[in-house]
């Protein structure tokens, strides 16, 4: 068992581009679920709309990535409005059902062979980030020799990504300490009470849905920039739930929760994946093949992830560094 290799790749993933993506997605979910109590189970849909926007801006409309960014943000906001109108006056489960359904509608439509001319069907869209590549100021890779390294492109993606994360956290911090943020938290606790105090709950929920969706769009941009491609399989339903796990590890309704969560999540997931992959590799694997073959080993981290999501939500919704005082109230 090569623990150094496992540790290296875990550190690389914990701060790498993928962690950035899930961090941004979770920041959006934090605004939705953590602060406002809205169950958006379709964050992948927001990400997809944005990711395809910058891809198609270049491939179909032959404009710049920046146009794609603007269009992506607008489309994400529009999607939030479209989802909010039928559901935000209803019980919480309806939003959950409609968001998970619409993320799937978007995915299946974009993946459809009938539109493959535009969206490339199952294969998605490629060759659109030359502008982003050209702007890369770095050359050469960064890392600790023998442990891990990031390529120059990775470092560029991470710079942009973590800057976006910092900016997003600042915005969330400023919003949530304001009376506006207080209304959102109040809605999470009891929306009828807030309504009885003269606040337009529907409008606040809609604003929260749009803002969280825009953070989701930022995550979507990072997906397409980081992979230099977008495809329907990048935005499967589970992406949203990984982001929920990220959020709950770091703690819902905490500004830095998604950041802490993303780092820990990717560290653990990568380490688990590495461990089980090594434990089943080779001629005389640590775990006998009859119990676990390499294919099954790759599933172990998701089995742990599912368990982790359940246990976190049950025992530590405030995150693993959560506040005991708050926990005591939840138990009621």
């Amino acid at each position: 068992m090569d623990f150094v290799a496992i540790l290296g790749s875990a550190i690389q993933q914990a701060f790498g581009p993928t962690a950035v993506i899930y961090c941004l997605a979770a920041i959006g979910l934090n605004v939705h679920f953590g602060y406002t109590g809205l169950l958006n189970f379709g964050q992948a849909g927001f990400m997809m709309v944005a990711g395809y926007s910058i891809a198609c801006a270049v491939t179909i409309f032959a404009t710049s990535l920046w146009v794609g960014v603007v269009v992506g943000l607008l489309l994400a906001a529009l999607l939030a409005l479209a989802l909010g109108v039928p559901t935000l006056r209803l019980r919480a489960d309806y939003l959950a059902i409609v968001t998970i359904a619409s993320a799937e509608i978007i995915r299946q439509t974009v993946a459809a062979a009938s539109f493959s001319e535009y969206f490339g069907g199952q294969d998605g869209v490629t060759d659109f980030i030359s502008g982003f590549r050209d702007a890369n100021p770095y050359s050469g890779s960064v890392g600790i020799p023998g442990l891990f390294r990031w390529s120059a492109f990775d470092i560029w993606v991470m710079t942009v990504g973590w800057l976006l994360v910092a900016l997003s956290c600042l915005v969330v911090f400023l919003l949530m300490r304001s009376p506006w943020g207080r209304v959102l938290k109040s809605i999470r606790e009891d929306e009828n009470a807030v309504r009885s105090l003269g606040k337009n709950v529907y409008a606040y929920k809609m604003q929260a849905l749009v803002i969280g969706g825009i953070f989701g769009a930022l995550a979507g941009f990072m997906v397409s920039l980081r992979s230099a491609a977008v495809g329907p399989s990048f935005f499967a339903t589970d992406v949203t739930f990984f982001a929920y796990t990220v959020l709950l590890i770091g703690g819902a309704a905490r500004v830095m929760g998604p950041v802490v969560g993303a780092i820990i999540f990717w560290f653990l997931i990568t380490a688990l994946g590495g461990f089980f992959s090594q434990a089943t590799a080779g001629a005389d694997p640590l775990i006998p093949e009859a119990i676990m073959d390499p294919n099954q080993a790759s599933l172990m981290r998701f089995i742990f992830l599912g368990l982790g999501l359940m246990l976190l939500m049950i025992f530590r919704p405030q995150g693993i560094f959560g506040d005991r005082r708050e926990l005591a109230i939840d138990a009621r």
Binding site: G37, L39, D93, D238, T245, G306, L309, M310, M313
Partner: peptide, 15 residues
């Protein structure tokens, strides 16, 4: 119920 829905998501991924 909101917490329970997320628990059910975790169970879904697990199973």
């Amino acid at each position: 119920i909101i917490a329970m829905m997320i628990v059910s998501i975790g169970l879904s991924i697990f199973l």
